[in-house]
């Protein structure tokens, strides 16, 4: 067995300490944002059958759209599909400024993305899964939601829009 000790240069040791401290700082910043400020990534919401999710009358995505669940609070059921023509249903939504909207998005065919521009809502849409994130719209304007994952020939034209009215 060996008794050699590892040689570490003084500068090298200091550098390693600085590196470790930096990484701990970064990790702390992320943790504060996640648990202190509540900026969270999507969590498992619900699993569905992609073959029936768009047609089963009991599925909210057979009639996609906006539902007001409380004053100023909305659930938006959005279907992202490649077949037949790469679009979101509904293509357009309108809410008054100050509204809080929970997006519930799923796909009956291939994987898609869903990113609401200028917000933190950005997630994968995966057949068989329901993706959910919630956004409060404090500024009036038009917010496009765009597809961010390759889903076939029409991927580049797949988008919709939320109008936030004053």
């Amino acid at each position: 067995m060996s008794t050699q000790k590892m040689h570490i240069d003084r500068y090298e040791r200091n550098w390693m300490i600085v590196s470790a401290v930096l990484l701990v700082l970064f990790a702390s910043a992320v943790s504060v944002a996640a648990f202190g400020m509540g900026i969270q990534v999507p969590a498992p919401e619900q699993r569905v059958n992609p073959n029936t999710v768009a047609t089963d009358p009991n599925s909210p995505w057979s009639n996609p759209g906006l539902r007001e669940v409380a004053p100023g609070k909305y659930d938006a059921y959005i279907l992202a599909h490649a077949i037949p023509n790469w679009e979101y249903l509904p293509k357009e939504i309108s809410v008054p400024v100050g509204s809080t909207v929970s997006f519930y998005v799923t796909s009956p065919d291939v994987q898609h993305g869903f990113k609401v521009q200028n917000t933190n809502a950005n997630f994968m849409v995966i057949p068989g899964q329901v993706s959910k994130l919630t956004v409060t719209f404090d500024e009036p304007g038009t917010y496009n939601y765009i597809c961010t994952e390759y889903c076939g020939s029409g991927h580049g034209v797949m988008y919709g829009a939320i109008t936030v009215t004053p």
């Binding site: 992320v30 996640a34 961010t148």
Partner: peptide, 11 residues
């Protein structure tokens, strides 16, 4: 960076 990825994912 976990939630920072919300801004960047698939961009």
């Amino acid at each position: 960076s976990y939630n920072v990825n919300l801004v960047l994912h698939n961009t």
